Amino acid sequence: MHDATRDSGLTGEQPVVCHHDPGPNNTVFRGGVPVAFIDFDTAASGDPLEDVGYMAWTWCVSSKADWPPVAAQAAQVRVLADAYGLSAARRAEVLDAILDRQSRNARWWAERLSDSSFRLAGPEQIASRIAWSEREHAYTSANRLVFAEALR
């Protein structure tokens, strides 16, 4: 999608159109293999690292005890960066893109708590999503060196 929208006139001042939510929950799988993204309601112009950072977080990084150890997660982030074809300079920005997206996710959900017209999730579910985003941010921050080393 990024390549298709680059220089398309759809991007405004930004380089590409981003999905802005390319997580597993917005992916169509066939035979256990991801084949397409869906749910483009948040698509808008942006920097490719906005999507790459979000994908790295939601596909590769988790503080859950039943996930692989951080070194294995960092290796997966590297695979994603390699597959996307990031330059060395852009690879160095992936970790900040992950942390930024985790912070923005927590803030976005926190704003929903005070929005009485928001009906897609109740207060308990919103609080859970905020706590998850903050926990993931703390985990990523605590393991910053491991992720950074994998991306070199």
Rank of each mutant, 00 (worst) to 15 (best):
residue 28 V to L: 15
residue 68 P to I: 07
residue 72 A to I: 03
residue 98 I to V: 12
residue 18 C to Y: 02
residue 27 T to M: 09
residue 59 W to V: 00
residue 16 V to Q: 08
residue 102 Q to V: 11
residue 46 G to R: 12
residue 40 F to R: 08
residue 106 A to P: 05
residue 101 R to V: 06
residue 147 F to M: 01
residue 106 A to F: 07
residue 138 A to P: 14
residue 131 A to Y: 10
residue 30 R to K: 05
residue 41 D to E: 14
residue 88 A to G: 03
residue 11 T to G: 12
residue 76 Q to S: 07
residue 128 S to L: 12
residue 152 R to H: 12
residue 86 L to V: 10
residue 13 E to A: 11
residue 86 L to H: 04
residue 124 E to D: 15
residue 146 V to L: 03
residue 26 N to L: 04
residue 151 L to D: 00
residue 57 W to L: 03
residue 45 S to R: 04
residue 61 V to I: 15
residue 27 T to D: 09
residue 51 D to N: 10
residue 29 F to I: 10
residue 79 V to Y: 00
residue 123 P to K: 13
residue 97 A to E: 01
residue 43 A to T: 10
residue 15 P to T: 12
residue 135 R to P: 04
residue 128 S to N: 10
residue 46 G to M: 09
residue 45 S to D: 13
residue 108 W to Q: 04
residue 36 A to V: 05
residue 74 A to C: 11
residue 17 V to T: 07
residue 150 A to T: 04
residue 54 Y to D: 07
residue 9 G to E: 13
residue 64 K to H: 11
residue 70 V to F: 10
residue 103 S to L: 10
residue 101 R to T: 02
residue 30 R to A: 13
residue 142 A to W: 09
residue 137 H to P: 03
residue 72 A to E: 15
residue 109 W to T: 02
residue 101 R to I: 01
residue 3 D to C: 03
residue 36 A to W: 01
residue 114 S to A: 14
residue 41 D to G: 13
residue 42 T to M: 12
residue 143 N to R: 11
residue 150 A to Y: 00
residue 44 A to E: 07
residue 132 W to F: 11
residue 105 N to P: 02
residue 68 P to M: 05
residue 94 V to P: 00
residue 145 L to K: 07
